[in-house]
Design a protein around this nucleic acid. Sequence first.
DNA 1: CTTTTAGGAATGAATATTCATTCCGCATAT
DNA 2: ATATGCGGAATGAATATTCATTCCTAAAAG
Lengths: 189, 189
Amino acid sequence: MITNKRDDVLEAALLLFAERGFDGTTIPMIADKAKVGAGTIYRYFENKEALFNTLFQYWVTRLSEIVKDNFPSDLTNIRLHHRHIFFQIIQFVNHNEHALHFIDSHCSTHYLDEKSQKLFADFLEFLRSILEKGKEQGDICSLPADALIAIVYGAIVQLFKLMRMNILEETPELLVNIEECCWNAIKAH
Amino acid sequence: MITNKRDDVLEAALLLFAERGFDGTTIPMIADKAKVGAGTIYRYFENKEALFNTLFQYWVTRLSEIVKDNFPSDLTNIRLHHRHIFFQIIQFVNHNEHALHFIDSHCSTHYLDEKSQKLFADFLEFLRSILEKGKEQGDICSLPADALIAIVYGAIVQLFKLMRMNILEETPELLVNIEECCWNAIKAH
DNA sequence: CTTTTAGGAATGAATATTCATTCCGCATAT
DNA sequence: ATATGCGGAATGAATATTCATTCCTAAAAG
């Protein structure tokens, strides 16, 4: 199989950044895991920060795409929207178990560049717009959209942390129940 | 005002560790912020890791105490338990706005020593025991206790991240509503 | 078909920088 | 005068980055 060195580097970096954070990950560590010389990394990326931002932008774009993909055509059924978003994020995590934690643990750090920040802000803005519509319709409880996002998104992130640590086993049934819990948290009562 | 250098160091370290993480925080940074010579830190702590673990243990102990303090005497009213735990955590955050994020962002890192890990595990075990009781009584939805903790605790952590970043303003009314949301997420329906 | 050769890719040792930790001289208190 | 606490320059280890060299591939020449 022909593997592309640049991709090998990105894959190794994702694992390490997710597990040890930006500052806890060294270039030699990445080179080792990618089975590549340390110098090779600098053929593809200007420096450690540029590598980091490339990776961040890639995964935020993916997440954004997967959530927006096949978005329910019925624009008034918020219950459906919530289910869609929830299970698309699940699919995202199942596609790469480290990416969500990588994004979450670095989304407000000081080495994010302009473009990374903008991509992430845009994604949040999308979620916000969905929730605002739900609030207008009276289907969702009338708290600030950011608070609602924090509740659902915070729960998801924390749950997958447990699953990555093998403390909690992911089963389809559990996921359905958890989605229900999240919905109960934010629906209008 | 007589200030204790050791406490100055601990306070500065808390801020920096919370904002930049363990690896992103250097000893000179801590010394600067604490207005102390770098060498002085080593009069009080064996090394950076020891300083970190002292701090972690201090704050987990505080959190645990504040949550267990004045725990409702009615041992069957889970609704009350939830409210108590929620608002005691709020009080903890208001006492020091960085401590919860400091704990959360470091609670599964590899430089935690045995004692730190045990203290944190004990705290989780306490929460777990409350939830298990609620499940037995049929007041709380029958998912794994760890999942329920993740939902509520994840939401709280994320919410305070927004408040620290001044994206969300903390008002008593908002907090009451959010507590309600969290309860709705985990109560039996 | 084999050999030569040019140019890009890859390497890892060398360099420059940053960081944790140590150490020594100064100041303050006893 | 001695002891104690402190600061911050000095040290050495770890780290990011560079660079001279080697390695591959694929096309040109024989």
